[in-house]
């Protein structure tokens, strides 16, 4: 019994301490914005490695998700004779939910895990320590560009995901299932609101990008510098960021679209 209590106490203390460390880490990372302004090439390099290199998985997944939406939506809507609303259904689900959420989950798997492993290995091979001894702040030099690159690229990736998804839905709905093309586009145009749907979707993906970047970078920076420690940290990144993306999605949806 006492042992269990001790364990509970230790776990609580450890997780509180970790939360505190991660908050300081984030503040320090965000303060690196001035250094990025002086050296934009650091940010551009990271935009390429976290953003551009994630593009392939985002476009292909977006296409298939859109196609599935077109197919499933058609079967459901045709029961009610409302096939013409397929365009709205596909676009609304993508822009409001699937675009931000699925692209953030894919981003966590593709770029987040890579970031954790990279930072963790830099720590294990004393590169971060070496920078500190060369009087270069590793958080500002290594972490900040990656943090801002994630915050900038996730909304863009989500937008691309949604656009490609709409094309996928069109391909299946109009191309294969002969939904009227005019109705597909015009219903989408009249029913998707710029502020309610698109802006809210962008806000969601900015928040998700921020969350995934924070978790991935902190897990890497805080990793135990051994091969086992880095592998555990990488797993934690994918698990924790997927979990927080989904949980935050619920909270944000409730705030944006619900009457809670």
């Amino acid at each position: 019994m006492i042992y269990l209590l001790q364990r509970l106490g230790r776990t609580t203390c450890n997780s509180l301490a970790k939360t505190g460390r991660s908050a300081f880490f984030l503040a320090h990372g965000l303060s690196g914005v001035t250094d990025i302004a002086l050296r934009p090439y650091l940010l551009i390099k990271q935009l390429y490695s976290v953003g551009v290199l994630t593009l392939l998985i985002i476009t292909i997944s977006g296409l298939f998700v859109g196609m599935v939406l077109g197919l499933q939506g058609y079967y459901t809507l045709s029961d009610f004779g409302a096939e013409e609303s397929l365009g709205v259904m596909v676009a609304a689900s993508l822009v409001r939910e699937l675009g931000p959420v699925v692209s953030a989950l894919l981003f966590a798997g593709r770029a987040g895990s890579a970031l954790t492993a990279e930072i963790g290995l830099m720590k294990a091979t004393e590169q971060l320590s070496g920078m500190e001894m060369m009087a270069v702040d590793p958080i500002k030099r290594i972490i900040s560009p990656r943090l801002f690159a994630c915050i900038l690229s996730v909304p863009l990736l989500a937008a691309i995901f949604s656009s490609i998804g709409v094309i996928g839905g069109h391909l299946v709905g109009v191309g294969m299932l002969s939904v009227d093309e005019g109705a597909f586009w015009s219903q989408m145009q009249s029913n998707i609101d710029f502020y309610d749907d698109i802006v809210n979707g962008i806000i969601k993906s900015v928040v998700f990008g921020f969350m995934v970047a924070w978790i991935a970078l902190f897990e890497g920076y805080d990793a135990v510098p051994t091969s086992e420690g880095v592998s555990r940290a990488t797993t934690r990144t994918v698990v924790n960021s997927s979990f927080s993306v989904l949980a935050l999605d619920f909270i944000l949806t409730a705030l944006m679209f619900g009457d809670i």
Partner: peptide, 19 residues
């Protein structure tokens, strides 16, 4: 501390080169 470290060099066991 950073100003002082500019006057110190350190050679790490692994070399700690930026890969």
């Amino acid at each position: 501390l950073y100003a002082l470290r500019k006057k110190m060099g350190m050679l790490f066991q692994s070399g700690a080169l930026l890969t």
